[in-house]
């Protein structure tokens, strides 16, 4: 194996060397100036440019068309189609510009390749033309930005009042979620209270934390606004839901949030994709260390009634960990009071 690689390397080196020597000697023999501008290669290069361009257009068109279903993810939130519309309009605009400029450039390269008898056209400037191609992109951009900002403000703006609130916390290398429970209020938490059991540091001296529950998987209702209150406990992570076209970083020491309205249940997605194991997942999208690539969390979207049913079945955290709670109250009641000052 090593020998073969060695031989291949040696042979390619020899070829390069021979190519070098022979072309040098050839050009000396032909008494060409070291830099003579007439060069049979000139046309070769000009034509190759055009050929390359058409071939790549063909491949790009073919692949973009043929593989569309593979790279275009189904959309599962209310704002996703709006974002995608802007994405594809931007695509249409940029793709047009891409095609036109590349065609023009490689065509010029071919059309105006060196000919001894021709002289280039001395054309240092044309203010009209320059103004035109400054103003047109500017107008197009204003359109794209304006549209984008309207959507941005909707998506990033304050969530509807009736949003389901769920706390998501990223840590190396998993996600935890906490629901406010029947009182609809997340209890206080403090990173100093974190330990192996109480991974988000719930402060049980706050009465609204008593009914909070922390399920294994995140459930959210279809058709209702969902607000993620996002935290991180060690390094930065990022809550990324590709099907929802939603993303927000999780930053230690700085709570963030994002909201969206799911429009497809997990069951519907299973049908749509033909994959019976399909699941929505939060994937971590900010480098966070060794297992960044496998840091994910299942999200189950269900019909609202299923969701309510599921929620009612959940036991609060203290109900599941009564000993911990008893200990906590014994040890922390005084400290926490100081802490919260």
């Amino acid at each position: 194996m090593n020998l073969i690689i060695g031989i291949i390397l040696f042979l390619s080196l020899a070829v390069v060397f021979l190519l070098f020597r022979s072309t040098e000697i050839l050009s000396v023999a032909k008494k060409k100036m070291a830099t003579s501008f007439e060069d049979s290669n000139n046309s070769f290069n000009a034509i190759s440019g055009v050929v390359f361009m058409f071939l790549s257009f063909a491949v790009i068109f073919w692949y973009s068309y043929d593989q569309f279903e593979n790279y275009f993810l189904p959309m599962a939130s209310k704002h996703a189609p709006e974002v995608e519309l802007l994405f594809w309009v931007t695509m249409a605009v940029t793709f047009t510009v891409f095609i036109i400029t590349q065609v023009v450039m490689f065509y010029f390269g071919y059309r105006y390749r060196y000919k001894k008898e021709r002289k280039a056209y001395f054309y240092p400037e044309n203010h009209k033309l320059e103004i035109v191609w400054t103003v047109i992109p500017a107008i197009v951009l204003v359109g794209l930005i304006g549209w984008g900002l309207v959507k941005w403000n909707n998506i990033m703006g304050p969530p509807p009042k009736d949003a389901e609130v769920i706390e998501i916390m990223g840590y190396q290398f998993a996600w935890a979620s906490r629901y406010p429970g029947p009182d609809n209020e997340l209890g206080d938490a403090n990173y100093k209270l974190i330990d192996v059991d109480n991974i988000v540091g719930i402060d049980f001296t706050d009465s609204s934390s008593l009914d909070d529950f922390m399920p294994r998987e995140i459930h959210i209702p279809k058709g209702k606004p969902v607000l993620f209150k996002i935290k991180a406990r060690d390094v930065i992570h990022s809550v990324y839901l590709p099907y929802m076209r939603s993303q927000m970083n999780a930053v230690p020491g700085m709570p963030t949030q994002m909201w969206f309205i799911p429009t497809k249940t997990t069951a519907e997605m299973r049908e749509e994709t033909g994959n019976e194991n399909f699941n929505f997942e939060i994937v971590c999208n900010k480098i966070c260390g060794r297992a960044h690539f496998s840091m994910k969390h299942t999200v189950i979207v269900e019909e609202e009634w299923e969701y309510i049913k599921w929620k009612n079945e959940q036991k609060s955290w203290i109900e599941k960990n009564p000993d911990y709670y008893a200990n906590f109250i014994k040890n922390n009641s005084i400290d926490v009071a100081v802490l919260n000052d």
Binding site: F37, D39, N41, N42, N45, A46, T101, V104, M105, F108, G109, Y112, R113, Y114, K115, R118, K119, A120, Y121, Y123, N126, L129, E130, W133, T134, P137
Partner: peptide
């Protein structure tokens, strides 16, 4: 964008040596 267009305009009716 202006820069890109200006490059292309420079090629126009040039006598291009590759």
């Amino acid at each position: 964008a202006v820069k890109a267009f200006n490059y292309i305009a420079t090629l126009w009716r040039g006598n291009i040596v590759f």
